[in-house]
Design a protein around this nucleic acid. Structure first.
Length: 717
DNA sequence: CATAGCCGCCTTTTT
DNA sequence: GGCGGCTATG
């Protein structure tokens, strides 16, 4: 579909002729707000790319264009494509988070932060929130760190700062949580760290409180384009609104049916209410689908039509019919994986390339069984996962060294490296230094420098600390060296390399990984105009493995349904279509909104497929080491009458003897029931499918389960 | 102060 | 079945 080799610029007639009328309108309607409602496979990304080119062709300087994508990968692809269209480079194309880093660094003083901030990831955040809970003298049993973090994250995404949260807290729990939030922010500030949500919140507050910054940025970015607008949260919405307040040249594209990040604060109302926010907005709908065969679109359509809370939208196929859709049942997850591998072999036998094949699943844990099957079947694959690479111990170690050089207040980084490799500086010593830092109101690194003055320390640890401090100071004299050179110096001179080389086979991989890291840094040094260590560290904090996913490598891609957004494949497998997995049990299926989001997730998966779609579920699945009986997902029955009858039920061959014995029993919502192992519960939902009927029961243990009546002995009371 | 071994916790999805 | 954190031991 794309034509990156075309040498001409966008205004070239021939290129313009490749666009549909709707696409043409979206590309060339240049002034004022524009909403592009674009279904899956409608060439949305292509439209944005052409639009950037069209703006430049119309005389807008690339420098004045800002495009926001959902992932770094999408950003770098878009950069390449605009250049391939023959337009000048220089447009700012990045994610919201990267844009905020840029803004916060430039206006650090006005945002009341230091520009050399560290970006705190998940595990750093967990450490800080645990500290905060402890400082507030609370028990982690009543205030679990993960719950607290989730709440804090939601507050930040809604732009509620600790003070206003505290002022509005009226019950005991909120008041206590307000203290934790306050303390957590205080700890981050002390360490000169920002978490992911801070990047958005601080940028939003900066723009809110500084009209001059707002208009300066409005001048800089005279055209703002936002992709995947259905997944913006409140903070991002406010940032966008502030950025265009002086000119209203905003163009957003998205699809409400593909909104799958509600749990992260995404607010689908942002796209639904776009025309209220910008009343003179032009609206373009892209409903033609250039990606999938009509059979695939038909079941996608039938599925998504089950969502009540949506604006109806058709998927109009352009390709002729020729799809293969299969629903297969397996005994368990390893057999399911084996079936996938077998099917992959069939496909490649018929000439399919491995990178035309993808396998999607709901949770990362499902990748294990698949991985084993692919290894056994000797089929090259790549798992596209969140932050695998940067989460490795050795990478975190070297990163901690580099972070500590840039941001001496980063206590987490310093504590990580102070005794790695072992320098005889243990907990007793570091506790004494921390106490000294706290009582003298200085940073951890300053306290280390003054370790000689700490009375509670004896001579030996003082000397060891001095050696450590000298080493870091020595590294700091090389701060302006190329990042790769500095990273290698640190790796060798810190003793990390010797430590790893003395180790076993696993540590050999670790050395390899660090050299992989160094060559990535070298690539950064080469490709960046003004490379600095600070910039590099802040950039890679926002980088995930998904961004490193190599679409051209001849390997089957394995990823979660969430990661699949924006991608397309000739052949798609979706595994684990079971109650509890898709829809996931952690999403409250009583809550219509959450159930609908799970349905959209399945919809996103289906609409990635061009021609061949394989859907599968297992009758048994091992979850956390426990073998569980699985029930086919309710979504399978929503794929359309003819399709469901022909495929699901015929393939659901339950031949267990016990199924004969249990007679069909009708239940109703509200019925009190007893289960052999879960005890008493209340029926929340009853899906009557004859002998395949399913009851969704909320048990008194607190858990909600979907029970297939013919398997479980569920008696009505 | 370092290390090994054990206990208990959690596990949706990601920038 | 995996990891972080704690404890007991050297």
């Amino acid at each position: 579909m794309d034509d990156p080799e075309h040498p001409a610029s966008i205004m070239n007639d021939e290129l313009a002729r490749q666009l549909t009328p709707a696409q043409t309108k979206a590309v060339f309607h240049i002034d004022g707000p524009l909403l592009v409602i674009a279904g899956p496979g409608s060439g949305k990304t292509r439209v944005i790319t052409y639009r950037i080119a069209a703006l430049i062709d119309a005389g807008i300087r690339p420098h004045n264009i800002c495009a926001i994508t959902f992932t770094n990968k999408a950003a770098s692809e878009m950069r390449q494509r605009t250049i391939a269209l023959g337009t000048a480079p220089g447009a700012h194309i990045s994610t919201f988070h990267s844009l905020c880093v840029t803004i916060l660094r430039r206006y650090a003083d006005k945002a009341a932060i230091q520009p050399n901030f560290s970006i705190y990831d998940d595990s750093d955040q967990t450490k800080c929130i645990k500290q905060a809970i402890k400082d507030c003298e609370l028990d982690t049993a009543n205030f679990p760190p993960s719950r607290c973090l989730d709440t804090v994250s939601a507050l930040k995404n809604s732009l509620i700062d600790p003070d206003s949260f505290k002022n509005n807290a009226d019950d005991f729990f909120s008041k206590t949580l307000a203290k934790v939030y306050m303390r957590y922010q205080h700890i981050l500030a002390e360490r000169n760290g920002l978490d992911f949500d801070d990047l958005l919140m601080k940028a939003a507050f900066l723009l809110r409180d500084n009209p001059d910054v707002c208009s300066e940025l409005g001048n800089r970015f005279r055209f703002l384009l936002i992709d995947e607008y259905q997944d913006t949260n409140h903070a991002q919405y406010k940032i966008a609104k502030a950025l265009v307040s002086s000119h209203n040249n905003i163009c957003v594209t998205g699809d409400p049916d593909q909104s799958i990040y509600r749990w992260r604060g995404a607010d689908i109302r942002n796209i639904l209410a776009f025309e209220n926010d910008w009343p003179n907005a032009a609206v373009v709908k892209l409903e033609e689908n250039f990606r999938s065969r009509p059979e695939i679109l038909r079941i996608a359509d039938a599925l998504i039509a089950q969502n009540k809370n949506r604006k109806p939208k058709k998927l109009i196929p352009v390709k002729p019919p020729a799809a293969n859709i299969t629903i297969a049942a397996s005994e368990d997850e390893s057999q399911e994986a084996q079936t996938v591998v077998q099917q992959v072999k069939d496909l490649t036998g018929r000439g399919a390339a491995l990178n035309d094949i993808a396998v999607f699943y709901r949770v990362n844990a499902q990748s294990r069984a698949l991985e084993e099957a692919f290894i056994r079947g000797q089929i090259p694959y790549q798992i596209v996962r969140g932050v695998e690479f940067y989460n490795r111990k050795e990478i975190r170690d070297i990163l901690a060294y580099l972070k500590a050089l840039v941001n001496p207040d980063d206590e987490i980084a310093l504590l990580r490296i102070i005794n790695t490799p072992a320098r005889g500086i243990g907990k007793t010593t570091t506790d004494a230094v921390r106490a000294y830092a706290a009582s003298n109101n200085i940073g951890f690194f300053d306290a280390l420098k003054k370790a000689g003055d700490i009375d509670s320390l004896s001579k030996a640890p003082k000397a060891k600390i001095a050696v450590f401090v000298n080493m870091l100071e020595q590294f700091k004299t090389h701060l302006t060296d190329p990042v790769a050179a500095l990273a290698e110096r640190v790796f060798i001179d810190s003793g990390l390399k010797d430590l790893l080389q003395a180790g076993g086979e696993e540590d050999k991989d670790a050395v390899e990984n660090i050299y992989g890291f160094i060559s990535k840094a070298a690539q950064y040094d080469r490709q960046t105009e003004n490379p600095t260590l600070l910039d590099y560290l802040q950039q890679i904090s926002l980088f995930t493995d998904v961004d490193a996913y190599d679409t051209s490598a001849d390997r089957v891609a394995l990823m979660t349904l969430h990661s699949a957004k924006g991608l397309e494949f000739e052949n798609v497998f979706i595994v684990g279509l079971e109650e509890g997995l898709l829809p996931h049990e952690r999403s409250d299926t009583d809550n219509e909104d959450e159930l609908e989001e799970e349905r959209r997730l399945f919809f996103v998966g289906i609409t990635r497929a061009e021609s061949n779609l394989f859907i599968s579920y297992a009758r048994y699945r091992t979850i956390r080491g426990q073998l569980n009986r699985a029930i086919p997902s309710r979504f399978l029955y929503e794929l359309g009458e003819d399709f469901t009858n022909r495929n699901v039920e015929n393939q659901c061959c339950y031949d267990d003897a016990e199924s004969q014995e249990i007679q069909h029993q009708a239940l109703e919502k509200g019925d009190l029931v007893r289960h052999d192992s879960f005890g008493l519960g209340t029926v929340r939902e009853f899906i009557d499918m004859g002998e395949d009927s399913i009851a969704v029961v909320k048990f008194n243990t607190g858990q909600t389960k979907s029970i297939m009546l013919k398997y479980a002995n569920l008696s009505k009371i």
